[in-house]
Design a protein around this nucleic acid. Structure first.
Lengths: 192, 192
DNA sequence: TAATTATTCAACATGTTGTAAAAAAGTTCA
DNA sequence: TGAACTTTTTTACAACATGTTGAATAATTA
């Protein structure tokens, strides 16, 4: 997706890794994870099977690395949304940026978040959202409604990620902006 | 979990299937799904590997069948909660019965819902909750807040299942009754 | 161009999968 | 109880997947 590399890297490495990643995303659209082998990935990526092992320990390891990259991308996006705004609309903007990013890489996210095949990615995003909400409600949480704070955080973060997943599964029927607004409304009234 | 069988079944079949299921749950507590082989399941279940194939096509098939059984159990529970109540507190009672059932089979649910290893189960429960909420809001939905009904349903059902998962992961720090109350409150104010 | 690094090729041991046929063990029911 | 039936075990097999090796070829760098 993004680069993440400052030091000059051998273009063969970049090319090979990209081919492998594309191949995996490709295969995940077609079959369950347990049908995907290093062999198939190598074939699809038009590389030698041994080359795969020069870059990743196994498929699991590869997915963890991809999830890590995704998490870094998303954290960057959310950080810069927080930075550039000083009005009170930070979380609405954060959501909007996040959804735009997801929509912009729809093919990737539809596979890794929208299918049941790769829980690592969903897990990772849930963690990011949970942390964001936890931070956000650090001071503003009002215990008025007798709701436990941790329950409210569980509730809100799962709601966000679940809605994003459903949105992806339904091929993003709303614009990122509109969905961000909807989510902000739901999020404000409940779970806070 | 429950029986589901009216016709008399050879006790060897029941015994073997139970051994296999227990073995899988056992192994899922210890390792990722991709490390679990039919061999390991058979060893742990103290049955012959070939016997596994007399009952299930493969591990995937086995998990689908287990998820189906879980779904039937849960649907029974929710149906009887709906039946026995005529006051307006149906959904609170439904939630409470559901959470009690989950708590009562904590070891099982902690593994199949609380880990990232078996998305089929989470998926299945999400579907049940989504349908329940859809039915529940069929007439009572008020479009007052400019929130799309489908978005509200995505939001609410994901919130419910996500909270249950988090509750399991944290070893159920609240009683089913208390959590049901909390969820009902959160659910009432948001997502409707 | 020379040195370095990445990729390919061929090969290997080890383990998994799914299936088969026949023997052994357990269950049912007259 | 004993005979008929069903399930489980045993042994065996072919196909495929895994992870690693050492040596060759190819691409990049400087």
């Amino acid at each position: 997706m993004t680069d993440h590399e400052n030091t000059r890297v051998d273009p063969r490495i970049l090319r090979t890794r990209q081919l492998i990643k594309d191949a995996l995303i490709d295969l995940l659209q077609e079959m369950e994870l347990n049908k995907i082998t290093v062999n198939r990935i190598a074939e699809r990526a038009t590389i030698n099977r041994v080359t795969f092992y020069l870059h990743y320990r196994d498929i699991q390891d590869m997915m963890e690395k991809m999830a890590q990259e995704m998490a870094e991308d998303i954290e960057d996006i959310m950080r810069s949304a927080t930075d550039k705004e000083s009005t009170g609309e930070t979380d609405s903007l954060m959501l909007e940026s996040l959804l735009e990013h997801i929509a912009g890489n729809g093919k990737f996210y539809k596979v890794v978040l929208g299918t049941r095949r790769t829980p690592i990615f969903t897990e990772r995003l849930l963690k990011i959202l949970t942390e964001a909400i936890t931070k956000r409600t650090e001071k503003s949480f009002r215990a008025s409604s007798d709701v436990q704070r941790d329950v409210a955080i569980w509730y809100g973060s799962s709601a966000l990620i679940g809605t994003i997943v459903a949105w992806l599964r339904n091929d993003m029927p709303y614009t990122p902006q509109y969905l961000a607004k909807q989510l902000t409304m739901l999020f404000r009234i409940g779970g806070k």
